[in-house]
Design a protein around this nucleic acid. Structure first.
Lengths: 232, 232
DNA sequence: CGCGAACTTGAGGCGTGTCAACCCCTGTGG
DNA sequence: CCACAGGGGTTGACACGCCTCAAGTTCGCG
């Protein structure tokens, strides 16, 4: 596997490396490309940790669960994002990572990443940036879960999703959701019916058109205003 | 500042380092000990990032805020925990870190940490573990915010707090809360009155005694059961 | 073409928020 | 040492947003 010629090299772990450094990590950082079928788990909570995974193509959900059967979707990682960082601490993954569509991931053995990080300071720095970003994203989700009303959460979710799609060159207005209402609801801390009602209400307000998993956002600014116009 | 003779060296960043390695980082990893008075901010969202902070003594809260004035407490870090990791990504801190009592923190310039990490693999590994743990903790908070009822959240909060105190050699049954009902409520995504009512109800159930910020937990197992006995 | 899963929509109940009054501590100044 | 002020905490009554339960609809897929 060669990072130096990969189409994602500008939005992936080795961003900012020189051509020389990129060639140095070719065939070393990533040795295997793994395919994950729709519905299949890339890894599960409790599995032994030995690698992190860079999403090359596809879409995932990550889920934490308690022994009592409580579940919570903690994220919807997509192309260019790194998964498995939660496993570094204890040596076992703490979430399930399930593909929401047929996907391909670059397998990065963690030992190799730490070694190459010592050799290439820029790689080390990028890795730290990515872990830090993960923490910041988590804080942002906590803010949503802790302080927003149901409709605001759904609006924030849609805006966040479309922004990420836009950054990857996809349309930000016409979206096909890869996840169910129930998965969205779990992520946002509300029930699936509440998500459905929010979509319907947004449609009635002329902000978007929704038909099952197809969403056409006609008024992104209006959606954004839902996050501002709140009695705080 | 010397890490090799610090009383916290077994529950701090350089855990697991050899005596030689510890002496190598003495006066280098930590150059300054900073005092933060009760109510004062160690750093604020937007401040330029150049260091992470290891809490030596004291107690903090971290708070995220939006431009619209929405706020969310994201954590209550205490002795032996690392703060400021959120600033690595963008080069600016993304939360406020406010002392809830007079505190002292070791200032760790981030440049130095990355350099020493390249020299000492064990230091690098410990740092990665800590960042990873931060992500896992965040997932756990998401689970609370997204799937638990108010009383369950309060019970989980109390159990988590006392467990951390216990790990530091303090009593796990007799606690003086350093934070207000409002701060607890913000952290848990409920209103301060709801926190107050939960405390009162726990007392009525014989699980604990509460008087203002003094909490005496008489039945930790009973508290734990509140998290199990739920229709999921 | 038909089945089942996912989604939508409605009615009613419950949990938490809101608002307000009161109490308890702490700290300050006379 | 006491009086007082003020912030934090508690408790109650009521409102409302979201959950629950249920029925009906649509869509994807075998």
């Amino acid at each position: 596997m060669r990072c130096s010629t990969c189409s994602l090299r500008e939005s992936c772990l080795p961003v900012g490396l020189t051509d020389e450094e990129l060639e140095h990590i070719d065939h070393r950082l990533v040795t295997v490309l793994r395919k994950v079928a729709h519905g299949e788990a890339l890894f599960s909570a409790g599995d032994r940790f030995d690698a992190v995974f860079e999403i090359w193509t596809g879409f995932f959900k990550t889920v934490v669960a308690t022994s009592q059967g409580r579940q919570q979707v903690t994220g919807f990682p997509m192309g260019g994002e790194l998964m498995g960082l939660d496993g570094i601490d204890t040596g076992r993954y703490s979430v399930d990572a399930v593909a929401l569509e047929d996907s391909q991931v670059c397998v990065i053995p963690f030992e190799v990443l730490e070694t190459l990080g010592r050799e290439i300071p820029m790689l080390q720095k990028q890795f730290h940036r990515i872990m830090s970003r993960e923490i910041v994203k988590a804080h942002s989700v906590m803010l949503q879960l802790g302080s927003m009303h149901a409709e605001e959460r759904v609006a924030a979710f849609l805006l966040n999703l479309t922004e990420r799609l836009r950054a990857r060159g996809f349309s930000a207005s016409s979206v096909v959701l890869r996840m169910s209402r129930e998965e969205i609801g779990s992520y946002l801390g509300v029930k699936l019916e509440t998500v459905s009602r929010a979509f319907s209400k947004f449609q009635a307000s002329g902000l978007l058109f929704v038909r099952q998993r197809h969403v056409e956002i006609t008024d992104p600014v209006g959606l954004q205003h839902l996050l501002y116009d709140v009695t705080v």
